[in-house]
Simulated scan of single mutants.
Amino acid sequence: MTETPNPNIVDADTLTGEMRPIRRVVIALGSNLGDSLSSLQGAVDAIADTPDVWVTAVSPVYETAPVDCPPGSQNFLNAILLADTTLAANRLLERALAVEDAYDRERSDVANAPRTLDVDLIVVGDRRSDTDTLQLPHPRAAERPFVLKPWFDLEPDAELPGFGPISELLAATGTDGLTLREDLTLDVE
């Protein structure tokens, strides 16, 4: 995945005049509590309303069996959102967390606990990060069909930096546990 469709394009910050590159962003959305479709649509709308973020595509919605979740967890609805942004990765992460909070995301020490909304940064251009708060590219994306398949639907030739083509990653993981929900759609305004 390239930094931007045209790496020579930059955007000047209107306040400081600082030049910032436009980066392609892949964001995974998921929910398995409450009105999951409304939560996913709300996340799409909130990200689209974010200054300096331009949503370019949203994948079909998939219903996914819970992976490594506590017993009794409900199925998830999952989708991928593609966007271009001039925001720094940390600012984009802050926005993602704020969107989760707006949908009453409760954080716990239980791994993969059910949630009203999950907004994960998968790729932010070619940015690499390995801190406690931000890991890019997302370290488990290469193993997650619920990330790979909807992303493949939008960009079949995309690559997950450091891991390879998503088509090969998807072939390795398979699509067991994924169901395309043609009756559910997310809109970009």
Rank of each mutant, 00 (worst) to 15 (best):
R140E: 14
R127Q: 11
E155A: 14
P139Q: 12
S59Q: 05
A171D: 15
G164S: 12
V25P: 01
T131L: 06
I122W: 08
L33Q: 03
A88I: 04
D52S: 15
P137R: 12
N8T: 03
R24S: 15
I22H: 09
A28K: 04
A142H: 13
I27N: 00
L134H: 00
D104A: 13
A89N: 01
D183S: 02
E100F: 04
L180I: 02
D11C: 13
S38F: 02
R20I: 06
L82V: 02
A142I: 00
V53K: 11
L169V: 01
F152E: 05
R95Q: 12
D52P: 03
L186G: 11
S108H: 09
A28H: 10
D176L: 09
L29F: 01
T185R: 14
Q41L: 08
G17S: 11
L93Y: 03
E106G: 08
T2G: 14
L180F: 01
R128D: 14
D104H: 13
G42E: 07
D11T: 15
D153Y: 02
A79K: 01
R24L: 10
A57K: 10
G125D: 13
D101F: 01
A113Q: 09
M1S: 14
V119S: 05
T64G: 01
V10L: 09
L160E: 14
Y62Q: 00
S167C: 08
V110G: 03
V188I: 15
